[in-house]
Structures are given as C-alpha cells and as structure tokens.
Simulated scan of single mutants.
Amino acid sequence: MRDRRDTTHLRSKAVLLYIPNIIGYIRLALLATAVVLGKRYPYSTFVLIVTNFALDGVDGIIARALNQVSVFGAWLDVAIDNISRGAIWCWAVQGPLAVIPISVEFLTFAATQEWGGAAWKTGCFNNAPSWVAAVMRNGFKSPAGILSVAGLFGMPLWLWSRRFLPEFCFGNLGIGAVLLAGRLLAASVEGWVLYEHLKVTLQEDAYKRAD
C-alpha cells in the first residue's frame, strides 16, 4: 500500500512538471511582470500580455503532441486565462464595472468544470442550440469560435490600449467593433451555460426533495 501511495505521489509531481503546465507557469510569470510594469511601461506590458495570450494556443498543441494531456493541465489553462483577463479588466475599466465580466467568466469557469471537467469543451455542449454549437465547434476552430475567442481575450486588451496607449494602432475603433461583437457572442454562450447549469442544479434539488 505504501509503495502504491509513493508511486501515486511521484506521478502527481510528474504531472506538475509536464511541459504544457510549465508553459502555464511561464504565463503566470509574464502576467506578474506585466502587473509590476503596469502603465509605467505600457508597450512592454502590452507585449507581455500578448505573449501570455499567444502561449495559451501553444500549450494544448504541445500537450497533445507529447501525450501530456491532464485534468490538472486543463484546469490550469482555463484558470490562467481567467486570471489574466481579469487583471486586464481591472486595469482597463475603472470602478466596480470591471467586476461584471470577471464574475461572469469565473462563474462560467466553475459551471463548466463541474459540468464537464477536463472535457468541458465537448461535455457541456452536447445538446447546445445551433448558435452555441457554432461557437464551440472543433474547440472554437470555426468562424464563430474564432470571433468569440478574439473578443474574449481582445476586448479587455483593446480597452486597456485605448486608455494607456491612445496612439497605438490596436486601439482603432474598427478593431474595437469587431472585438465587441466577439465578446457579445462569447457573453451569449456564457449566459446559456449559466442558465443551463442553474436549471440542472435546481432540477437535482427537486429530485432530491421528491425522494
């Protein structure tokens, strides 16, 4: 029994050191550096944030290529996404309004993790309406999915750029309009997820009381 526990512990430590997970730790380090630099060095901060976001598309590819897919890695990836976007929303939007997108994203994260776990991209959307399925198709690899992800990551960064890099081309109003459309599309999917999760939760409570 002791040998089995030791083996399990060693395997758990090995998962922590999977290459995709190390990329996640690097993303956190980039975010921490961006927080330190802040508005004093806005261009450097922008590059760090964009690099953070770009690495989000790399870790999954590497995980599949090296057969290092893990439940922890799937959770870590989305958690870092939410933390990163949350930090930018706090910089970009003054006052309590920043709480709205941050709260919605974390509630959606909690709902999908409870609902589908590591396989949330498929497990939560088997019976989704067509417009939600269009966003989620092939893990966001569809026109609607790409637009949604662009808005999800790009909208807070665009607002941040408008505030701290007003002359930078990324703050163009045309780019902002596209990103806003994507973020609204993502918000519609988040709303559907939260509605369905709440409905299922209430149904489970009703079944328990009936028993």
Rank of each mutant, 00 (worst) to 15 (best):
G60N: 14
P101G: 05
A87E: 06
G145M: 09
W89N: 07
V135G: 05
P129E: 04
F46K: 09
V78I: 15
V135K: 08
L97S: 09
S142P: 10
M155R: 12
L76D: 00
G145N: 06
M155F: 11
F53P: 00
D56K: 11
C124N: 09
E114Y: 13
Q68W: 13
R64E: 11
N126D: 10
P101Q: 07
V50W: 02
S84P: 04
L152A: 10
G86W: 00
K121D: 07
G57C: 07
A54N: 02
D59V: 10
L165E: 02
A74C: 02
T112I: 15
S70M: 09
V149S: 10
T51G: 07
S142H: 08
S148Q: 09
V47P: 00
I83M: 09
G86I: 03
I61A: 14
V135A: 09
S161L: 10
N52S: 04
G57D: 07
N127A: 14
S70R: 12
L107S: 13
Q68T: 11
R85L: 11
F153H: 13
L147W: 03
M136D: 01
F53E: 07
F72N: 01
A134G: 13
M155N: 08
G145S: 12
A119Y: 03
A98I: 04
W91D: 02
A63P: 14
K141W: 00
W158K: 14
F125M: 10
A144W: 05
E105M: 15
F53H: 04
E105G: 08
V104F: 03
G117R: 08
C124G: 13
N138C: 09
L66M: 15
S130K: 13
P143K: 03
K141T: 12
W131T: 01
V93M: 08
F46A: 11
I88C: 07
I80S: 01
M155A: 11
E167P: 00
E105W: 00
W158D: 05
S161C: 15
E105V: 03
W91V: 02
L147N: 14
A74L: 00
G57Y: 03
G95N: 07
G57P: 06
R163C: 06
W91N: 01
L152V: 05
R64H: 12
S103G: 15
M155P: 04
S148F: 06
R162C: 15
G123Y: 06
W89D: 06
R137S: 11
K121H: 06
C124W: 06
P156G: 08
F109W: 03
R137M: 12
P96K: 13
